[in-house]
């Protein structure tokens, strides 16, 4: 039901890697390595400052994709990946955006499921890609029914 959105992109959102946000995030995942939170350690490191944990880009805003109106409840997070050119350093500023990469429906033993793959990208103003992140969201039949009704009432 979302096949028509494949290839659609979001707007780009200007994003900065913030020191306080990284510290809070590192604490929330039980990470204690000084490269994330100790200023002195960061300054002496090869990056010249603290860096962000690998899953930190999940906290960024990737804009909104016209026509993609996912419900807040009932979604299943199936898969997630991150790929980096280099670690993100405190103060890095770049643009985040999202692309609908694919949508397929498959019949599995738990019913007919929709698999939506979003490709999230962080790139500099000159187009240098710093990271890519893929998220696979699983939409059950129940969720897809609700989305149809939601769209209907908005029409």
């Amino acid at each position: 039901m979302l096949e028509h959105l494949v290839g659609k992109k979001s707007n780009k959102v200007l994003t900065t890697v913030e020191r306080g946000a990284v510290k809070k995030f590192a604490e929330a995942i039980g990470e204690t390595h000084p490269i994330y939170t100790d200023r002195e350690y960061g300054l002496k490191s090869k990056y010249g400052d603290n860096i962000a944990p690998p899953t930190f880009p999940r906290t960024f805003d990737y804009g909104s994709i016209e026509g993609l109106d996912l419900p807040k409840a009932g979604l299943i997070h199936g898969e997630q990946s991150f790929e980096y050119a280099r670690p993100l350093v405190i103060g890095d500023t770049f643009y985040c955006s999202s692309l609908v990469e694919s949508y397929v429906e498959k019949t599995t033993k738990t019913g007919n499921l929709g698999f939506l793959t979003l490709l999230n990208i962080g790139e500099t103003e000159s187009g240098e890609v710093l990271f890519k992140s893929r998220i696979v969201i699983i939409l059950t039949e129940t969720v897809r029914e609700l989305m149809k009704h939601g769209n209907h009432s908005n029409a």
């Binding site: 490269i35 490191s45 860096i51 690998p54 899953t55 299943i76 997070h77 199936g78 898969e79 997630q80 990946s81 991150f82 790929e83 980096y84 280099r86 670690p87 893929r134």
Partner: peptide, 12 residues
């Protein structure tokens, strides 16, 4: 101190 996580991919 020797490098960084270049890629990380999981299934839940």
């Amino acid at each position: 101190h020797e490098g960084f996580v270049k890629s990380y991919s999981v299934r839940f």
